[in-house]
């Protein structure tokens, strides 16, 4: 994944960037399976690697496929990223060790879900039970977000279609006039 990200940073052909992005998503899905997050891995493979790639390719079809070279040396962004990164690495020293069942984050509400989800919701998949039942309002909010984004995309792209139609009508009017 690290190698793929370096490739994305260096590539100037946007097709290569998009395809590397798809490869990155599949690699992430594999890592998620290893980390026991099978539902998330499936969603990431379908949505991240499938849908995002298709959307990006569609946009490349509508626009252009080469990136202009950088105009100024990227010294300041690089410095900012390195500083932030080293601060974050320093912060990992205080984090609990990897993979122990008695870490604080694994002792909060998760044991309750694991013990009672099947009894209370009749679903053996705890992730589904939490998503649809215990944290159903989150999912409702998520649906609202998708709905809003969908409306936004439709509004943005419908203005474009209307203008194109106006242009066609104008062209036809012009040609009639010529005739």
């Amino acid at each position: 994944m690290v190698v793929v990200v370096i490739g994305i940073i260096r590539a100037h052909n946007l097709f290569a960037v998009v395809i590397l992005g798809g490869a990155y998503s599949f690699l992430l899905a594999t890592v998620l399976v290893v980390l026991d997050a099978v539902d998330v891995a499936m969603t990431e493979a379908a949505v991240g690697a499938g849908m995002s790639t298709v959307l990006l390719l569609a946009v490349l079809h509508l626009t252009r496929t080469r990136e202009a070279p950088l105009r100024h040396a990227p010294a300041i962004p690089l410095l900012v990223c390195l500083l932030t990164g080293s601060a974050l690495v320093y912060a990992t020293v205080d984090l609990p060790p990897f993979g122990l069942a008695d870490n604080p984050q694994n002792q909060h509400v998760a044991p309750y879900y694991l013990e009672n989800a099947e009894k209370e919701t009749k679903s053996p998949n705890v992730v589904t039970a939490v998503l649809a039942s215990y944290r159903g309002y989150d999912t409702l909010g998520e649906v609202t977000v998708i709905f809003t984004a969908g409306i936004g995309v439709l509004i943005l792209l419908s203005r474009r279609r209307r203008r194109r139609r106006d242009l066609i009508v104008k062209d036809e009017g012009g040609s009639k006039h010529d005739a």
């Binding site: 997050a37 539902d39 998330v40 969603t43 990431e44 949505v47 991240g48 849908m51 995002s52 959307l55 990006l56 569609a58 946009v59 509508l62 626009t63 984050q105 694994n106 909060h108 509400v109 998760a110 879900y113 694991l114 989800a117 705890v126 992730v127 939490v130 998503l131 944290r135 989150d138 999912t139 909010g141 998520e142 977000v145 998708i146 809003t148 984004a149 969908g150 936004g152 995309v153 943005l156 792209l157 203005r159 474009r160």
Partner: peptide, 28 residues
């Protein structure tokens, strides 16, 4: 722990909504 999985499932979908809206803006 199932809880982060649930939160991230929500985040993935919100993420793709963000990308879709951004791409529509790029086209415009």
């Amino acid at each position: 722990n199932p809880l982060p999985h649930v939160l991230i499932l929500t985040a993935i979908v919100v993420g793709v909504a963000t990308i879709a809206l951004g791409l529509a803006l790029v086209v415009r």
